[in-house]
Design a protein around this nucleic acid. Structure first.
Lengths: 338, 338
DNA sequence: AAAATATGCTCAAACGATTGCGCAATTAAA
DNA sequence: TTTAATTGCGCAATCGTTTGAGCATATTTT
């Protein structure tokens, strides 16, 4: 890069001090009584010299970075990509900049990124943790970094989060299957020790219990297409098959669909399917898939409101918000009552 | 945030100078002959005090940020989200950090973000421009910032890019329709003055011309679901309908699908469909949709290789790479020959 | 034993911005 | 006219690192 213009260059050119230049360029000319004329001269010079403030320098001195960090486990998961998009737009409204990083569902990367974020003096953090560990997050929170967990949170921690009522969502889903007469259900889960997964499984099991159904299974271990695919494939090896599948994420559902298609299993004639997470494309599938939709926009809006208020006020309030999911009823569930 | 540990704290604690601390912590203890013992003492202290280097300070002084910036037009578009995910992973391999920003298909935001990136001393830039303006990009490139355009580029500029052969892709798509006997085709395009769009339209028209077909139309103006939806809806008002639709992106296709479904138009019996951009879900649709797949992974890998080599060598080579797309043949095209 | 080399470490000046304090010069009040 | 208040601006320290230059002490070479 060619040498960048600094505040000094402008000072030299205008014959004013760097102090005045800085003040004008930060919109503090009123406060520090810089003459209107000087202001205009400085602004003109800045424009002419194509000045861009060095973020490092200003941030180093002022301690403000005007940046919100966002860590997501995987941008190739439409659910998270969508969240990223929403957060990004929302953050801008508050005058901050988002920097987004993909942790690739890898806790080590997550930790590294977190360090980098701190090194970059981010003012607030929105994070969808991988879900396996929490100490590092707890640490930065305790050190005073305002943050909000999204989607995956930690029940035992006193840290703000915004998520969906995963228990309820799964309970609703399972119940829907039950009400359609299903008595043999396979649940393909995601990351086993993540809170949403645990709660979804819990909700699922509770529904089973309440209905007195014992013929169910919970398998799988990742929120990925591969997991959905392989678990479905394995299930299909058995002579006795469940009548319905409940996938705990849209990626898992995608893998499941792939496996079913390969084996020519029809939905819902041969097997019923319901999944957590909604997506536009679910409507256009061979059989549109019923889903438990999370209120993504609301989650993002609330998370940000929450975060920003913690940024501004000293005393932190630990708001933990759980929003209700909604069933998007489509044609993937057959009624096999009697 | 509670006060962070600085290099000074470590110096104080260990009784050594900040210089030595800095050198040890940067892995330069060999080069500057710091005693092994001192090194260990310093490392232990850093660990104990939970030291994280202030990125602003070091970047300010050294001029290195170790950061690659990525600007995408919309993370809610799976195609771009996928690119972001790939780039992110690839960048990490080279030891850099990516910061991703979503420009929301808004040139003004794109300009602002670019300024912010410069203020943050990014060392390289990967950008999928909105596609409408290029001066600001040309400017930073001329000032020496290594960058690579992805997907959307500018033919007339001497700037590195990696993209797909859009002309060829569209030509192939159109030809496929023609070979199936289609003689009345609707093309729903994206951002009109973006290069990929222009080339796709050109390829489409060339195929029409080569086949002597005059009964075609090119409509639309955005790479969005809404655009696909409304253009399809409008088309459906007419008594005379095309026999095939060619959508120039997967978002447009999604909107198109929505409209077709609402009006109960079947694919491919009532109308055939082919789209640019592939996605896993296209396989599971009511009728799996034939697509022109771009080699996303290769694009990202090459772009990064390109960028990194420009980072390291002084003299820039302007590599402009065009990769071949591939047809993913599925069942969305009916044969209506004769 | 003196000279040369190696070893281990520090000084202090940057990097580019922000900011508390203070000082002229001008204007208003007494 | 003197004093007080206002206006307009600059000095210089500071943020946390990095780094060229240099300085003792210890070791090796002659």
């Amino acid at each position: 890069m060619t040498k960048k213009t600094t505040i000094k260059d402008i000072a030299k050119k205008t014959g004013l001090s760097t102090t005045s230049v800085s003040r004008v360029l930060n919109g503090k000319s009123e406060k520090y009584r810089i003459a209107e004329k000087s202001k205009q001269i400085i602004e003109a010079a800045a424009l002419e010299l194509n000045y861009v403030a060095n973020h490092f320098a200003s941030s180093l001195k002022s301690g403000k970075s005007n940046t919100i960090g966002l860590i997501v486990p995987s941008l190739s998961n439409p659910f998270f990509a969508n969240i990223a998009s929403n957060i990004n737009a929302e953050v801008r409204k508050y005058g901050y900049t988002t920097i987004i990083v993909d942790s690739d569902e890898n806790v080590e990367i997550e930790k590294t990124v977190l360090q980098q974020f701190i090194a970059r003096n981010i003012e607030g953090l929105i994070i969808i943790p991988c879900g396996k560990e929490m100490e590092h997050i707890k640490n930065v929170y305790d050190q005073g970094l305002p943050l909000v967990l999204l989607d995956r949170y930690f029940e035992e921690l006193e840290i703000p989060y915004v998520s969906t009522d995963n228990f309820e969502g799964a309970y609703m889903a399972a119940n829907l299957l039950i009400n359609h007469g299903h008595k043999s259900i396979l649940c393909i889960q995601g990351i086993i020790d993540s809170t949403p997964n645990k709660l979804r499984v819990k909700g699922f099991k509770q529904a089973m219990k309440d209905a007195g159904i014992e013929n169910f299974k919970v398998v799988g271990d990742a929120f990925s297409v591969e997991n959905g695919y392989s678990e479905t494939k394995m299930m299909l090896q058995n002579k006795v098959r469940p009548t319905a599948i409940f996938t705990l994420s849209n990626t898992i559902a995608m893998g499941c669909l792939k496996a079913l298609k390969e084996e020519n299993i029809r939905i819902p004639q041969d097997i019923s399917l319901i999944t957590f997470d909604d997506h536009l494309y679910l409507d256009f599938l061979a059989t549109p898939i019923t889903s438990i939709a999370q209120p993504v926009e609301a989650i993002c809006k609330i998370a940000l409101k929450n975060l920003i208020s913690n940024l501004n006020e000293k005393e932190k309030t630990v708001k933990q918000v759980i929003l209700k999911p909604e069933i998007k009823y489509r044609e993937s569930i057959s009624n096999i009552k009697n």
